[in-house]
């Protein structure tokens, strides 16, 4: 089945089984591999992408359902000229990434939060990121990155 959608601002079209997971279409068909697989059952959040601005698990979305939709992956967070999204920059300075396998999912989930809640509190950040599992950081520096660096940015 031919399925067309917008990926990180550009139009793409793929021939895929309609029930193919969006995750596999991104990684295997389009070779856009920033989106990771950690569990395949919507628990770990490593495959988080935005569909029409909402964070979802790409392992749980059949590609037939993204026909005509706008998909954003970690590769699409930075500005076209390469300037990092504030949350990407904050992850660098605050140590939000360690092994990095969960990082793309966290960044996408955080980007959704910040789009709807520009100055989130720590509990709001924790609730918004609770669908992303990290085993390296204990989450402290991830929450720091999302809250504090953006507060600084907004105040600057």
């Amino acid at each position: 089945m031919r399925i067309g959608f917008t990926l990180n601002g550009g139009e793409v079209a793929v021939d895929a089984l309609p029930m193919a997971r969006l995750l596999d279409v991104l990684r295997e068909d389009l070779r856009v591999t920033g989106t990771k697989e950690g569990c395949g059952e919507g628990e770990c959040g490593a495959c988080t992408v935005l569909i029409d601005g909402r964070a979802v698990n790409a392992c749980l979305v059949p590609v037939v359902q993204v026909q005509g939709a706008a998909v954003t992956t970690v590769e699409g967070l930075a500005a076209p000229e390469g300037r990092l999204h504030p949350v990407q920059a904050a992850f660098l300075t605050h140590g939000g990434a360690q092994c990095g396998i969960c990082t793309p999912g966290f960044l996408v989930a955080a980007a959704e939060l910040l789009a709807h809640t520009p100055r989130p509190t720590r509990p709001q950040v924790r609730e918004a990121l609770a669908g992303n599992l990290c085993r390296c950081t204990g989450y402290q520096k991830i929450v720091d990155a999302v809250v504090e660096a953006l507060a600084t940015e907004a105040g600057a």
């Binding site: 990684r27 591999t33 697989e37 590769e75 990407q88 140590g95 990434a97 990095g100």
Partner: peptide
């Protein structure tokens, strides 16, 4: 010093290559 991690930029932009990201 809190030097930014060397692999940080690749990891926050999705460019870091884990084994499953490579397909010869």
């Amino acid at each position: 010093q809190d030097l930014i991690r060397a692999d940080g930029p690749a990891k926050v932009t999705g460019q870091a290559r884990y084994v499953d990201d490579v397909r010869p």
